[in-house]
Simulated scan of single mutants.
Amino acid sequence: MKKSAQDIEIEKLKKQVEKLKKAKESLQRDKRNLKGRLSTAQSKNAKYRSALKKRETECWIGQGDIRMHDESIGRHHYSSLMVALSVAFYARLSVGSRQIVEIFNILNEFMGNVFGKVPAYTTIGYWTQELGLSVYKESCSLFKDKRYALMVDESMMIGSEKLLLTLAIPAINAGSAITEEDVTIVDISIAKSWNGTSIKNVLEKVADKIGHKPEYVISDNGYTVCKAVRDAGYAHHLDISHTLGIFLERVYKKEADFQELSNNVQLVRFKYNMQDIAYLQPPSQRSIARFMNMSKWIDWISRMQYLYHTLRDDIKSIYAFIPHNASLVDELAETMDCITKIEKDVKNNGWSHDTISRCKQLVTTSLMSENERQCKVGSFILEYVER
């Protein structure tokens, strides 16, 4: 029976559908193959990128000098380099533990995670404390083959006990004043009280730990410390600032005009604090060792005297005591200028015949030709440098 045109057309369409199905299956197989190849390529690309970034980082740092996992520390999760960098950042950059964590995060971000896992800020804090203790224990070994001097002083109270701090510095003068970098803590001792014998024992203990005696010892004018150094048989130099402060105290402490001026300066500071004229307030006067730290408020009052005529009338009334004590202000400014120059010379150049000669000349020209009080200060200084 002859097929109709419609049946023929249907068969053609069925054949075309079969072909399309086969073509679709073929495309799906090709798609799966391409996906697999793409996944493999992406994986290889990621590995190549990681290796390239690591190589770039190593070249940028210095041909692979950093190896974060090669130098591990027993019973620790982090490498020796991580520990060393953490405490170096803390000690040299004056930043806190939290900031150090952020520094490592930034370095990891830009350097291909070269440092790996970053420690917690509390861990970094523990490392710095352990470093401080280790440095303290090994401090005496730094001076075994060097000339050194000791600085000793009674420090703060810890509960009912008092701390005695002993520092070591190079004995050779470097032509500049001693800085924090020159100082090494060699002994921290605590006792209920300190006398000449106990301090002497500490000094001798430090000398034994170092292996030889100090060239000299520096201290304030405290009787117990002076006796300890004398009994130990060490050369003794008194702190120049403390000594000159004592001379000022002997001359000015009980003088009525000085007491009045000092009280007025202190009263202005307390009375007008947190007010619109607080920008003019004087620097604080220390209650302890006040005469060792007079230069700041003497300099302030001297400058206020120079600028007094430019102030508003209401401010002038507050600081009226300054022009009323103009002669005393000038006297104190001249005296402090001389003392500051002596301190700077001695601290930078040390004691020598040249230093003593310069000090004598300065005192003679600056103080000995002035009023009675300045002459007294000058006499104390000359007597001290001529010992």
Rank of each mutant, 00 (worst) to 15 (best):
A23P: 03
Q28Y: 14
R29N: 14
R29Q: 15
D30Q: 14
D30G: 10
D30T: 14
D30S: 10
K31S: 15
R32T: 12
N33H: 08
L34A: 09
L34I: 09
G36F: 13
R37E: 12
L38W: 07
S39Q: 10
T40W: 13
T40C: 07
T40V: 10
A41D: 06
S43A: 05
K44H: 07
N45G: 04
A46H: 02
A46Y: 04
K47H: 08
K47N: 06
Y48S: 05
S50H: 02
S50P: 00
A51P: 01
A51W: 01
A51T: 11
L52W: 02
K53M: 14
K54Y: 00
R55D: 12
E56L: 15
T57P: 01
T57K: 03
T57G: 02
E58F: 01
I61G: 07
G62F: 03
Q63K: 02
I66M: 15
R67K: 14
R67I: 09
H69F: 10
H69D: 06
H69R: 12
S72R: 13
R75E: 13
H76I: 00
H76N: 07
H77N: 13
Y78H: 13
S80I: 09
L81E: 09
V83H: 05
A84G: 04
A84N: 03
V87P: 01
F89L: 15
F89Q: 11
Y90K: 11
A91I: 03
S94E: 15
V95M: 15
G96R: 13
G96H: 06
Q99G: 02
Q99N: 07
I100N: 04
I100C: 05
I103L: 08
F104G: 00
F104M: 03
N105Y: 04
I106W: 06
F110M: 10
G112D: 05
N113F: 01
N113C: 03
N113L: 01
G116N: 01
G116L: 00
K117D: 02
V118I: 02
V118S: 01
P119Y: 02
Y121P: 00
Y121R: 14
T123P: 02
T123A: 07
T123G: 06
I124K: 15
Y126A: 11
Y126Q: 12
T128V: 13
Q129E: 11
E130F: 02
L131Q: 00
G132D: 04
G132T: 03
L133M: 11
V135P: 01
Y136G: 08
Y136P: 04
